[in-house]
Amino acid sequence: MGQVLSLSLLSQLYPIHASHFTVNDIPDLTGRVVLVTGGSAGIGKETVAALLAHNATVYLAARSPAKAHAAIRELKERTGREAVFLELDLADLASVKRAAEEFLEKEKELHVLFNNAGVMFPPHNQLTKDGFDLQWGTNVVGHYALTKGLLPALLAAAQSSPDGKARVVTTSSMAAYLNTIHWDTFRARPGRDKLTRYALYEQSKHANVVFARELGRRYGHQGIVSMSVNPGNIVSELQRHMNPVLRWIAHRFIYPTPYGALNQLWAGTSPETADFNGKFIIPWTRAGECRRETNDPEIGRRLWAQLEEDTHV
């Protein structure tokens, strides 16, 4: 890893500049429809809270109805507004398809999609219902299928919006810098066994950036503004699979959960980012550069073709 990249990562781990953007800078979102995956906990829940407080219609997509409804009740107490539950299991493509269809039955337009949910460091033997590595299937395949399923509403929102834009914000991680895509590791195959669960997470977050940029290449001319985000070094439920000692140490050096929502809220709502198609947002609220591989059109095309083949979407 080069010296410049090392310094970039250090500046993202411990940003020396405060964010110029706060949740108070979010414009009025009356009439805007937003969907947040993983909205029942962590960064997703903080994102939903800020959107509700600024009058958006927010669909909180989550796997567990019990956790989702508890979060919706809590958020109503905090904001005075109520999110709409959308049942979604990103590790099950049939569930993803149902969720997209249910949304399209209720709404004609989707102004902002936050592909926020994810899993990190689960046991190595865990797979999705469709046989993908759990981290790849949830973080990459599920969000690809959901985004493609919701494209009619995103395109309709872009056509009717005053600025001609709809936005897709995909949550990546600093881990995107630490690995690239290993094309023989997506399912339970020998190639996958060569990677640790940490490397499998890193490649999924790297692929999030590749996906976001390829989405922007393919649909930017139709008004889709696609960005990816490193939310920062944040307290999150994602860390539940970490070794307890490592988790305790990590929590001594990371930022409170609300900080993690800032980058994606800036990307998804600020007039400043309306023309940030393909950008990678880093702490706090600034555009940065990920690994050069994430911006390679050939890798983007290959990933897209692989996801089309694997999902039939």
Rank of each mutant, 00 (worst) to 15 (best):
F114C: 01
A261E: 05
A207T: 05
H69I: 04
Y177G: 00
R167N: 07
V235I: 10
E214R: 08
A50D: 05
K279V: 12
D184C: 08
E74M: 05
H251L: 12
L246V: 05
A261N: 08
K205P: 04
R73G: 12
L134C: 09
R189C: 11
F114T: 04
Q159H: 13
K108H: 04
S64A: 07
N243C: 05
K76N: 13
H54N: 13
R218H: 09
P283N: 11
G149Y: 00
G131H: 10
A83D: 03
L75S: 01
S160M: 11
A274C: 10
H241Q: 08
C290S: 15
A261P: 06
E87N: 12
G300Q: 06
A156Y: 09
T79K: 03
A53N: 12
I234F: 03
T37A: 12
E214L: 05
H312M: 11
V96K: 04
Y259M: 15
L238D: 00
T311Y: 13
V96Q: 12
A61F: 11
I254W: 15
A18T: 15
L265P: 03
G44D: 02
G131S: 06
V235E: 12
P256R: 06
G164R: 03
P271K: 01
T196K: 04
T171D: 02
P297E: 09
T294W: 02
G300H: 11
V169P: 00
Y259C: 14
L303I: 13
N233D: 14
A305Q: 10
R78C: 04
R167W: 07
S172L: 07
A41M: 12
W183H: 07
T171Y: 01
N230F: 15
A94G: 12
A56E: 11
G44L: 02
N295K: 15
R192T: 00
V313L: 14
F103P: 02
V235Q: 13
V169M: 01
E46K: 07
F186A: 13
R197N: 15
A56L: 07
V169L: 06
G42M: 05
